[in-house]
Simulated scan of single mutants.
Amino acid sequence: MAARKSFRTVLDLTVLGLVFGCAVLVWNVASHNRELSATLRATGPLVERTNVRDRLVGTSASLSWLGLEEPDPAEAHLVWIVDVAQCRTCLSGRSAVWNALGDDTSLKRHVVVFGDDDVPQDARRALRGTTFTAASRQDLEAAFGPLLPSTKLLVDRTGVVLMADSRKAASDCGWNFEAQVGVLRGTLTTGLIRSQLVNP
């Protein structure tokens, strides 16, 4: 009887130990799952941006949708493609460096908006020396594939994409694409590339 009671106690303790071990394992897996989900949420936008940029750089696209002759006499084109419906603020408050590129007479600047959305009037006034064009989503995706709401391209006179950046908002990074273009073309200083506010 004592042996049976002792065996029962050992069995109960073993079951209790297994239950405790399983609870710790489940808690551990759940904790790692939360960490992995947070990492994926944090890196998701970076992966999206990188995929679009890597797909675009070096590709060739027709410039006809900008209303340009091919080859165009301008040496290069800075093209900002904006989905105004998804990013109403993309064209607001980012004009100083864009306008500074007006000193580069061989660089034409263009804003292209998706579809029928109007360019806000304050953006038309702020972005001086810029041509504004509307293009259908189908035409833009045929030329460049899927894009995020704010996409900037440096395109040479033959339509080859030299540099690209694509984001969900115009200011969700700590650096400025058009400043980088200006530095590489020798018209702006390096101090304009990175701002004080850096978001991951």
Rank of each mutant, 00 (worst) to 15 (best):
K168C: 08
N176Q: 12
A61T: 14
D103L: 08
R41F: 14
T105F: 14
V113Y: 00
K168S: 12
G102Y: 04
A2N: 10
V10S: 07
G93W: 05
G182V: 00
Q121Y: 13
F144L: 09
D83N: 09
G115K: 03
T59E: 10
R128I: 05
A61V: 13
P71L: 00
F132D: 00
V29F: 10
H32A: 13
T131S: 13
S166P: 03
T133N: 03
L101N: 01
N33E: 11
K152R: 07
L56H: 04
C173E: 13
D139C: 03
K168N: 13
Q196R: 15
I193K: 06
V97L: 05
R167G: 07
G67K: 02
C22L: 14
T105N: 15
V26D: 07
A30P: 09
Q138V: 05
V198L: 12
G191I: 02
S150E: 11
V112C: 01
E70I: 08
R55T: 10
R49N: 13
F177A: 04
R49I: 04
P45V: 02
V161R: 04
P149F: 02
F20D: 12
V57N: 07
T14N: 08
G159V: 01
L78E: 04
V15A: 10
D122S: 15
G174Y: 00
R167C: 01
D172Y: 04
L153E: 03
G174K: 03
R167L: 06
V47L: 14
R49H: 09
G145R: 02
V113Q: 03
L36A: 15
A143R: 01
A179Q: 01
R185L: 04
D83A: 07
S92M: 09
T130N: 06
A42H: 11
T14M: 05
A143C: 07
V10K: 13
T39V: 14
V112N: 03
A74M: 10
N176Y: 09
L148Y: 02
G191T: 07
Q180V: 10
T189L: 13
L140V: 00
L25W: 13
A143E: 01
E69D: 12
E75Q: 08
W98Q: 01
